[in-house]
Amino acid sequence: MSEERETRLFMISPDSKLTPDQLVRMVHAMGLEATVKETCYGCLVEGPRELVRTALENVRKDHRYEVFSKVRAYPSSDPRRCRAQHGTRPGYAQLEAEWELLPLIQHALLHAEAGRPYKEPEEAKQFPVDDFKKMCEANR
């Protein structure tokens, strides 16, 4: 089954003008034998792995920097993780948090794929204790 079924969430960056409804219609229009379920963040696509990946490739052709994706363990509407049964699933807050970060990632992807350089990360340095001592003594 695992080799066959893939459930994948497509998440639209908050900076995109694309709506979940438009995204769902786009996937439907591909005529793939996969189910599509609209969600607050985009949609869930479920079907044989190859078809779901075809859907992803097609979406990325038009919305490369606006739609992000990962697979989901549970099939769509699985009662073991159904909100109506138990309340929100524990990973829900994670999705919300990642969604908030997407505009920065979207922007950074555009930047990187344009071949522009990035700034090397700086190590956060602690304020040297000797300097701190001097500062305290100066204000005595």
């Binding site: 970060l101 920065l104 950074a108 930047h111 990187a112 350089p117 990035y118 700034k119 990360p121």
Partner: peptide, 12 residues
């Protein structure tokens, strides 16, 4: 990443 610049670094 907390800023656009840091995001560029992370993704890059």
């Amino acid at each position: 990443p907390e800023t656009a610049e840091q995001a560029e670094t992370v993704v890059g």
